[in-house]
Nucleic acid binder design. Structure first.
Lengths: 205, 205
DNA sequence: CGTTCTGTTGAAAGAATTCAAGTCCGGTGG
DNA sequence: CCACCGGACTTGAATTCTTTCAACAGAACG
């Protein structure tokens, strides 16, 4: 959302980047790989995640067209990134960006902007994990409606498993939370992946 | 740790900042206040947190001397910041920093650096919340030993309540996790606030 | 039209919280 | 110096929430 505004103002990455196409589950980068680039989603959806010792996966974030990712890395990546659905990403070399930033305060400002935004987003997503199962799902849906410009309907481009891994729950708990919200008339289903939000307030928790 | 290295290379904030002294629980900034400055801890410990609708508090991070905070803000703060113990912080105006960054690529680079580092830290702390209660506490202790330069002893400058709010648990659960780790001989207590880590591996989870 | 994958639901087990005592510690005043 | 107080911490038992395991329903696809 906000990153779209930024990129329309300043499409630098589009200009210096190369394009990479990814099949579903295609790997953008792996943990511990050298972090040579930053990325922008063009089409599709990219997921960043960590593998827990328990075997479970923790989905840190989903990135949609216009979003930048791979910003947190120092010299090596700390997480994994892969395509949640077939996707296209723009890849911009850090070296190139840095040397541009050395010459142009606007470029530097831009990098700082998207990183700061990403930081804020990470903090807000972290707050989800302090809530109960139902509230996590409710808040998650609420966030999705905001991404969709505040409309009342949400299309879930991700599976229940993806939502569960993102929210630190099981698919069953996600499912139960959704039926619970339906029972409260807070949401209703058009289909398994298409949800209408009736009462915003009762999603908040 | 890493931020200390950065600041020793580049003590810009120290130069342009004013100092502010805070009593325990003294407020640095509140949610929704205009975000005019960024901050650096000089002495003591600063906590950033959110208030949940349930009445509970979610402690997002503890900042120690050398650490920068308040970086995630756009025009208004999204969280609260207060002193966990009596503290001194350096306050640098964003306007000043931004105009310096417009002239000096080093300053811009510095701001990007600390923001990127903070982003990575936020992501890593988020991962804690995907673990079980015992593992959260264990990993938390492990992180503290890293901050202390990798030593075997940890001094908890924060109360059980603070730890609980940070890890999204109750004080009772934190306490039980600690006794559980003690029973496994992973840690031992010198006092309630002084812990010795015996077996790193059994803290990991 | 079945096969398969995704999602839902139910019952039992497990994990964390709540509520209620109790213990330990540091500080204060006698 | 000791006794006592209050706050921080621990422990136990009952409750609540989430997961696990197992069975079922529904949509997608050949």
């Amino acid at each position: 959302m906000s990153s779209v505004a930024t990129s329309s103002r300043f499409d630098l990455v589009d200009q210096i980047a190369s394009r990479r196409l990814l099949a579903r589950s295609g790997v953008v980068f792996r943990k511990n790989e050298p972090a040579t680039s930053i990325y922008k989603v063009e089409t599709g959806c990219i997921r960043t995640f960590a593998k827990l010792k328990s075997g479970r996966r923790a989905d840190l974030a989903f990135y949609f067209p216009g979003d930048y990712f791979g910003l947190e890395a120092r010299d090596r990546h700390v997480f994994f990134a892969e395509a949640a659905v077939p996707s296209a990403v723009l890849v911009a070399k850090r070296r190139t960006l840095n040397s541009l930033a050395n010459k142009s305060a606007d470029v530097a400002r831009f990098l700082l902007d998207i990183t700061g935004r990403e930081l804020q987003r990470a903090q807000e997503m972290r707050l989800l994990l302090y809530l109960s199962a139902s509230d996590r799902v409710g808040q998650f849906l609420l966030n999705l409606t905001k991404l969709n410009g505040g409309g009342r309907t949400v299309h879930l481009s991700m599976s229940r498993k993806d939502i569960a891994d993102h929210l630190g729950l099981t698919i069953e708990s996600v499912s139960r939370a959704l039926t619970h919200l339906t029972a409260k008339c807070a949401i209703s289903f058009d289909s398994h992946r298409q949800i209408r939000v009736n009462i915003r307030k009762s999603l908040a928790g």
